[in-house]
């Protein structure tokens, strides 16, 4: 009897709610499927539309490999520089009290807020032929704009706040008690950082690195402005995709794009794995 009662009750009070639930889940799933999943499937499908051989040719094209190398170089440099910066900036902002902290936080976030094209523009304006740093750099024969250093610099610029942004909330939630306790016991700054602070931010740091990697390897606008499209010399993978696409070499464009899709999926899986671990460790 109680079983049937329960069934009736569930029906009377929840049938409406259940309808809404099914409707909303369907809407959400369809939206994600059309907006996010189909484009990925499309890239892979188009990449193989002329067969495996054409795919291989596009992938192992020397220009593609060169572009991949430059992308890796730019990404690794960006991650390294921004990790150093992220750790110092997050430590400064969360462990000390000083005037202008809010301003500093805002300034760090600038690259996140501005258009990548504008990011490229400011670098050209600084280091390009009309830039005020040009004469100085030229004297030492350093070329930045339309050259590899420019690509790397643009990548560093657009991903600049990525790691500090992940570290700051975790560190500020953690407070300064433990560091102060360590300092009162006579520990030095580096020792405190390594022994006390770092274990708390391990996952947040990894998380930031993954996000930074994703953005660095995919950066297009800023890099596009500064590259001057010297094929084989200053081409990253995304730029290479563009060139192939604009040359109507669609299969090759999608083949190269498929490498980036695979990298993106790996990054996505890593991201979720890290988030899961961080949640378990109670960091987030």
């Amino acid at each position: 009897m109680s079983q049937t009662n329960k069934a009736i009750q569930q029906k009377s009070t929840n049938s409406n709610a259940k309808g809404v639930k099914v409707l909303l889940i369907s809407l959400g799933v369809i939206f994600i499927f059309i907006m996010l999943v189909i484009p990925m499937i499309a890239v892979i499908t188009y990449a193989f539309q002329d067969g495996l051989k054409a795919y291989q040719e596009a992938i192992f094209d020397p220009y593609t490999i060169k572009a991949l190398q430059l992308t890796l170089l730019a990404t690794v440099t960006a991650v390294a520089i921004n990790t150093v910066f992220g750790l110092f900036a997050a430590w400064t902002i969360t462990k000390f009290k000083f005037r202008g902290k809010q301003l500093l936080t805002t300034l760090i976030d600038i690259p996140f807020a501005i258009s990548p094209v504008i990011a490229g523009l400011v670098l050209v304006l600084t280091f390009g032929k009309i830039g005020w740093a040009y004469d100085f750099l030229n004297a030492y024969d350093i070329k930045i704009v339309f050259a590899v250093p420019g690509i790397i610099l643009a990548t560093v610029f657009v991903t600049f706040p990525f790691i500090s942004r992940e570290l700051i909330p975790v560190l500020s939630a953690q407070g300064t008690d433990e560091e102060e306790a360590a300092a009162l016991m006579g520990a030095g700054g580096f020792n405190i950082f390594r022994k006390v602070t770092l274990p708390h931010i391990k996952w947040a740091l990894l998380y930031g690195i993954v996000l930074c990697t994703a953005r660095a390897m995919g950066e297009f606008g800023a890099v596009s402005v500064i590259s001057g499209h010297l094929r084989g010399k200053t081409n990253t993978l995304p730029l290479h995709v563009e060139i192939l696409y604009n040359d109507f070499q669609l299969t090759s464009a999608f083949a190269v794009a498929s490498i980036l899709v695979i990298l993106a999926v790996i990054i996505l899986i890593l991201r979720n794995l890290i988030e899961y671990k961080a949640k378990k460790a109670g960091e987030k």
Partner: peptide, 14 residues
């Protein structure tokens, strides 16, 4: 997060 992870140029051509 896919749109964050997928390079914008790839999303663009797709």
């Amino acid at each position: 997060e896919l749109p964050f992870a997928l390079p914008t140029a790839v999303a663009g051509i797709a």
